[in-house]
Design a protein around this nucleic acid. Structure first.
Lengths: 212, 212
DNA sequence: ATTTATCTTGACCGTTTGGTCAGGTTAAAA
DNA sequence: TTTTAACCTGACCAAACGGTCAAGATAAAT
């Protein structure tokens, strides 16, 4: 019985896609909460509402699953990175990048936390990605900032320090979200509060480097 | 044979103290690197150069050891917090606090990383400490900042956002030290580089809030 | 209707984990 | 010198872990 005739093997493909997505979403949460070693396949399975053996059917090992999620996180990060183009006005570019990173922390906090775990642990899985892709991107932005400084468009600040400050502050809203929540009387920041925080971060940094 | 006569039970006490210190130092490193679940008692023992059973002789459980270290970390944090007094000039106070926190990240990076693990995981062991001691401290500093703003001494910025920015940026140099190292051509920041970073962080933030 | 390929899962396995303990050693007290 | 209290540790254990597998269910192809 059953089985929509459907075109080709559409149903099977849909099942696969839905299960993979469910497992990936669950794994992102669990890895973010407990780190690679602390996360258990049993908990990932439970969170995804599938039996543990099914997790291994779709992803051969725990490490394979972890690497796959790290790729996704990096893809999203690269997307935000692209908002930092070299064309327009420095103040516009920095504002856009800071806002994009703040929004990323708001919308995908688990990815940021996962990244934090990975780095604190010593970047065992991703040191190559950092030392190539990310470093190349960062170095080119640092050069852009040096150019702006040379043109007298902004203060003479150490560019890496500025970039680290942006990384740290924006990601703090994801990585230390629980702490912020406690300080905010055990309530998550409202959209209004978050928007206010975002505006203040932009304002302080832009003024701090002489762009306001 | 042997046994320096020594005064009273001085030798035994010294043995106890040295072993406890060795185990605590090892545990701080291992917990910081792997988080609570990821850290193993075997690895802590190995790092401390004592048999695993000896770890349990001095600290009943892994959790007891973890809690003890969290206390030590909090004590150090409180020390730095005390540099943020309400008396002097806002610029002097903020500069002093930022520098103290930067130095803490440099000298005791493991403590900062341990804290990061703890918060990312949801602050299971320390939410009470945060919602009482730390929150009281933070709220009183926020009030001080509001006072400075009211007196026209600095820009009208959202005080929590400013404090989070200071937390995030200063702790970034400990928590994401490995990432910074990779960006710095796989070499740890030299003292000169770190001093430059510290000065830049102070300068950008002070100017950013209208204190320079 | 039959075959084939994919999906599903309870039960199982070897390893690692936090923690225990008996029996020994060493140093302080009597 | 003897006794006592503290320190030390190899060997061990039950629980939890990542991963496997055989056997069944379901859907697509023939």
């Amino acid at each position: 019985m059953s089985t929509k005739p459907a075109v080709n093997g559409a149903h099977k493909a849909a099942i696969r896609q839905e299960n993979e997505e469910q497992i990936l979403a669950a794994a992102e949460r669990v890895f973010a909460d407990f780190g690679f070693k602390g996360a258990t396949t049993a908990r990932i399975a439970e969170t995804a509402h599938v039996p543990k053996a099914n997790v291994h059917y779709y992803f051969s090992t725990k490490e394979a699953l972890y690497r796959r999620i790290m790729e996704d996180v990096c893809d999203h990060w690269l997307e935000a990175a692209m908002t930092f183009d070299n064309s327009a006005d420095p103040a516009v570019i920095l504002r856009g990048y800071i806002e994009a990173k703040m929004d990323l922390s708001r919308v995908r906090p688990y990815g940021s936390r996962l990244w934090a775990h990975e780095i604190i642990r010593g970047a065992k899985f991703s040191s190559e990605y950092i030392s190539t892709t990310v470093k190349n991107w960062l170095d080119s932005r640092v050069e852009a900032i040096r150019g702006w400084i040379a043109e007298g468009k902004m203060d003479d600040v150490e560019p890496y320090t500025l970039m680290y400050m942006i990384f740290a502050t924006t990601q703090h809203y994801a990585d230390f979200g629980r702490q912020i929540e406690i300080f905010n009387n055990d309530k998550p920041l409202t959209d209004a509060q978050f928007t206010e925080a975002k505006e203040n971060v932009v304002r302080i940094i832009l003024k701090g480097v002489g762009l306001a």
